[in-house]
Design a binder for these strands. Sequence first.
DNA 1: TATCAACACGAAAACGTGATAGTGACCATC
DNA 2: GATGGTCACTATCACGTTTTCGTGTTGATA
Lengths: 347, 347
Amino acid sequence: MSNRITLKQIAKELNLSVSTVSKSLRNSREISTDTKNLVQAFAKFYNYKPNSIALNLRNRKSKTIGVIIPEITHYFFSNVIAGIDSEANKKGYRVVVSLSNESFDTEVVNIETLANGSVDGFILSVAKETLLNKDYHHFKETINQGMPIVMFDRITNEVACDKVIIDDKEGAKKAVNKLLNTGCKKIALVTTEDYVTVGSLRTKGYIEALEESNIAYDPNLVIKIQDQGLNKDEEITLLGQSIVKLLHQHRDIDAFFAVNELSAITVMKVVLDLGYKVPEDISIIAFTDGVLSKYSIPALTTVSQHAFEMGVASAKLLIDKIEEITNSEFHITQTMDATLIERQTTK
Amino acid sequence: MSNRITLKQIAKELNLSVSTVSKSLRNSREISTDTKNLVQAFAKFYNYKPNSIALNLRNRKSKTIGVIIPEITHYFFSNVIAGIDSEANKKGYRVVVSLSNESFDTEVVNIETLANGSVDGFILSVAKETLLNKDYHHFKETINQGMPIVMFDRITNEVACDKVIIDDKEGAKKAVNKLLNTGCKKIALVTTEDYVTVGSLRTKGYIEALEESNIAYDPNLVIKIQDQGLNKDEEITLLGQSIVKLLHQHRDIDAFFAVNELSAITVMKVVLDLGYKVPEDISIIAFTDGVLSKYSIPALTTVSQHAFEMGVASAKLLIDKIEEITNSEFHITQTMDATLIERQTTK
DNA sequence: TATCAACACGAAAACGTGATAGTGACCATC
DNA sequence: GATGGTCACTATCACGTTTTCGTGTTGATA
């Protein structure tokens, strides 16, 4: 349907060969100035642009990065994409996005659909189902076929590739230490099931920070978010109930650390409903980077994941691999600092 | 770098011609069963997948949709993308995303970069700067070159193409009527500059709803959000000041209608700070679909934009045009209903 | 005047695929 | 035994580029 002009058409129109036209446009000195001027003027007039698909085929690369993420309606992920997009554009790459919706099958299909030459490499964050299944063959095959992959945030150590993570454990420690330093004595934790790597690392940080302050780790103060096929609203309702129950059993809880934003907001909602004052009675810190924390009332103190920067870093790593600036045999794991952003839910 | 196997390599390996291999894989009955089985087994073993770039070149289409949006870290837009992605995948299309960051130049560059055969059509929401400049030549040229465009949400009537919008005026009226029906008498409006079409339509709805209830429209109750190159935080601070000022001048304001989420949240923050009770003293309704509204405390009553559905509808329209199911000469504007979601900031 | 270089351009191949149009070999029919 | 048809496969082209290798013409040099 597209009626864009091609080299062939220009050649025919000007009674020249395709090669001459091509060389003229690339300003080859094999071609006389007169001819070059003529061709260039003609091309400009008809708004000639080389067909990128033909170029891709010829150069055997697509100048495109495939991004596969669990969900896009999530500030963290969309912010990572913004970072990838920014860096990719700088280097002349395009970004194609596809969503796994946390599903293993979708992830497999997506990666296979894009691995047929459509993209030069992948940046991805592993779907929950995949982490649960521990089936990473699709990643391994892709890598075996010479296509580089960079994983960010939700990674697996079973696949040899470049990775970008934040220092989840250290970030969690920063959060817990902040709570301890502001006088909190009994800190509850809201976390995910262990198979989500980031969740378990943050849990580890929580435990370590407590131990370093000689506070015994009490498993009873931990709520693990169930996700057996519930939708988000149901999950939240369930979590809310768990929080109420926990607060009834342990009336001296004076702080919550939540490994993600929505949990923290849920904590805050419940806590405020029950008549506690935040942060006077109960402090809250979330692990996240989202808008909810920034604009909630009161605004949440958080551990920032630097999503945009993660995107930039991932894109840099991938492009270096694609352009063979870095050796494809060696893989690096880049750890980014998690920084504490103090807002209104801590003293 | 990619070492994916090609038809040629299979042919060489099996001492067959490329055509035979190709036909075998496509199960042509010109080829003997033995040969077909052999080739298919070989191809499967080496995980042959046709190179999509070659196919794109041959078929002169990319099976790819280009999406250009002002920003992705915005629940509305990322939700639209999720809708587009969902529908596109169903129909065998891929989605490449690029961001204009509200900049005219970036929008132009992005559309030109993708219009060289990389995509079969565009789904886009116009950048603010473009709306301000009123320079739509890049869209018109793209359409002239036979590439279909579907605009959603932020559209312009100066470009002839399919469009998907929500009924902004009607949505605004629903919101204002809800406020009136719950006893509000003096409703303030927080809106954008008029060049943002959706903003001005919502303003119109606000005015109409008032007039239909025989309430005089008072321009003094309207705050227009300035955006002369300020960053978001500065914008919000400024807006906050305007709200405080307005409330001082008009102490009997009992409701706010805000045309976007962040403004509404800002209103709520200021109002709560000043000691008003929401919704007892002041009701608030926002025009949006975001997480902030859903999870804010109290949760905001909103007019939903049905972002996901807009994405789906846009993708359907575009694919129909690409596949020439609908005539490229005729353009339809699809209006989606805006529905009121009652939460806790209205009585 | 034969030789050679510079000049200005064209032909052809390649990237990977799939469709159209051959091409031999074999068998059956009249 | 010439004709025709089926079978199983191959050659070629086209998609739009860029690049390598020609090639014919001109003018200068020995």
